[in-house]
Design a protein around this nucleic acid. Structure first.
Length: 212
DNA sequence: ACCCAGGTGGCCC
DNA sequence: GGGCCACATGGG
């Protein structure tokens, strides 16, 4: 007997077929450190922002050869990021957030590849301690950039669990625990489920990911 | 002229 | 622990 959470996964899988993941092309190919960094930067850029606008900012960063945590940290300050990131909105905060994140990773670990060696729970705490990285962004970085089995909760997840009456409370930590406790601790399943929930609620996945 | 989009931090009670 | 609100851009 599967839990309702697991049953819903199987239902959505059957209904929508093989899911198109977030970050589709990127997850399809073998990831290297560069790809991990782009995913992490994109995760911050797309906060409360359409993928289209986040992508404009990513393209600007790429044009300036700044799609790299080391290059961003080497700037020494976020000022020169502002105009590049402007299309993604919140231009007074996102440049600082990305610069702080880049500086943190480079200083503490040099690369995201190295960060992968650390424990998931510790890494999550470290990410959450950075301003601009809340629970959802931390989990997106863990799940999609670092390939750690950390379930991502977003508005779509909250709406679907409410609609299906799968929970009584809808706080982030409660729902995260609910999904993780009722599924195999598997990165592929967590990624697929997250994408399936968005497709079920919204009808499609927005990102095209041609930036690479 | 609205409304929305892969949130977060800072208040308030 | 929740409930609001500002934050900014580009597209429908």
């Amino acid at each position: 007997m599967q839990s309702k959470i697991h049953q819903l996964y199987l239902e959505l899988l059957q209904k929508h077929g093989a899911p198109v993941k977030l970050w589709p092309q990127w997850c399809a190919k073998k990831k290297d450190n560069r790809l991990r960094e782009i995913i992490a930067i994109g995760a911050i850029l797309t906060q409360r922002t359409s993928w289209r606008n986040a992508d404009l900012a990513l393209r600007n960063l790429k044009r300036e050869k700044l799609l790299s945590l080391e290059k961003i940290a080497d700037l020494g300050k976020p000022d020169n990021l502002t105009e590049l990131i402007r299309p993604a909105g919140f231009y007074q905060t996102k440049p600082h957030r990305i610069f702080d994140f880049a500086s943190f990773v480079v200083k503490e670990y040099e690369t995201l590849d190295n960060l992968m060696e650390k424990g998931m729970a510790t890494t999550r705490e470290k990410l959450l301690s950075l301003k601009g990285i809340g629970p959802e962004t931390a989990d997106v970085i863990l799940l999609y950039a670092l390939d750690k089995p950390s379930f991502v909760i977003d508005e779509y997840t909250k709406r679907l669990t409410a609609k299906r009456k799968l929970a009584e409370t809808f706080t982030y930590d409660f729902l995260k625990q609910l999904f993780e406790a009722n599924l195999p601790r598997d990165v592929e399943i967590f990624q697929n489920y997250h994408a399936l929930i968005i497709i079920e609620q919204r009808g499609r996945i927005a990102s095209k990911m041609e930036i690479v």
